[in-house]
Design a protein around this nucleic acid. Structure first.
Lengths: 204, 204
DNA sequence: GGCCTGCTGTGACATTTGTCTTCCCATGCC
DNA sequence: GGCATGGGAAGACAAATGTCACAGCAGGCC
């Protein structure tokens, strides 16, 4: 391995971002060429600096890291994507794979894993926690339809049926139907539990 | 300053904990003498290694970092406490001060702040983000009574009135009364919004 | 063409939730 | 003693929520 690995790092928490950048910078074969704290900056920055690998958090201000990953796949196909997230949710992993990510790492693990994962991804490997992969397979695909997700997502902060109806441009009666369907499919008793369950599985 | 600053680090996210430990370890005058990922281990570890300062996250498995801080105040008074948290919630800051913390840092800021804050706390200063202090003062104290907090906390995951009543050993009618009071005091429209608001302010 | 699925909408119904008023009882304060 | 305060509880009522059955319409599949 002769040349240095160029890394783009997207992470919203300043202290985490700075710490990871410093740590990876200590490795001789790794160089951080861009740091962003907002999902909307990922693609423009990547196009500007052309990194070998993008290290993306999922939950960011602006666009989600998963959306950005899908975009990078088409706009900068030579750039690998390694998702780095707090939550090892089955649905997240599934969506990451569909978005063309080469790896999926949870922030719970030891720091040493990170540089190792970067190198393995660059070597062409797929890096995925085996336990998480098993969970994603056993959990099955997302049972919620697009509309059900929309409505449930609009219900997160305690919005009333009328609020949700206005937000998604549907009749209040229809909103209640979708909520009822989502509650049924998630096996829960009310929308609050349904939201919890959907979040837990990475279905939103 | 002749001797080295001994630091105990409590943080649940493995990667964050490792990264912070490595970073602080790079400073010549700082040594990490203990790392814990569980709130229940803070006090025992502190008593064992007797650090000069404890760097505590608030939201941990086991005991909250705030509870541990209050305990350290009495069990190991010579140990300063610096709270390091994701969420700059007014209620958290207030409770941290009441628990005898010497500083309150949010994880959003740059990493350089951390070592600086540690040194300043050890020098006897109080380290608090001025904007956050202002917010905490303007927000006023927690308006919720103990019971209202209990009931609201039991309502977080979509529990029904009956569930909550069973959990806190109250009559369902009383639970509804408290929920109504909490909704009124938070200026919200339903329990879901009330829970959000209370969380936001660090009142739970 | 038939069949299924998904999206949108209604109306009716039972249940849950939120609000208000009232009550009892203990505590503490003057 | 007199009196406010706060926790706990009940009942009554209106509003919101969850369920169900049904219906029209589009698209995809065999």
């Amino acid at each position: 391995m002769s040349s240095v690995i160029k890394v783009l790092l997207a992470e919203d928490q300043g202290m985490m971002r700075g710490a990871l950048a410093l740590l990876l910078g200590l490795e001789e074969d790794i160089e951080i060429v861009a740091q962003v704290g907002d999902g909307d900056e990922i693609v423009p920055q990547a196009l500007a600096v052309r990194p070998d690998i993008a290290l993306l958090d999922i939950e960011l201000p602006g666009r989600s890291g998963l959306d950005a990953a899908a975009d990078l796949r088409t706009r900068l196909p030579e750039c690998r994507v390694l998702i780095l997230t707090t939550f090892g949710r089955p649905g997240y992993l599934r969506r990451a794979m569909e978005a063309g990510a080469s790896g999926f790492l949870v922030k719970d693990g030891p720091v040493e894993d990170l540089a190792a994962a970067v190198r393995r991804v660059l070597a062409g490997e797929r890096v995925i926690d085996p336990a998480l992969a098993a969970a994603a397979l056993s959990a099955g695909p997302n049972p919620l339809t697009q509309r059900e997700r929309d409505v449930l997502a609009a219900a997160v902060d305690g919005a009333t049926v009328a609020d949700i109806a206005a937000k998604v441009h549907l009749s209040p009666a229809t909103v209640r139907n979708y909520l009822s369907a989502a509650i049924g499919k998630t096996g829960t008793r009310n929308r609050m539990e349904a939201v919890r369950a959907a979040r837990q599985n990475g279905w939103l």
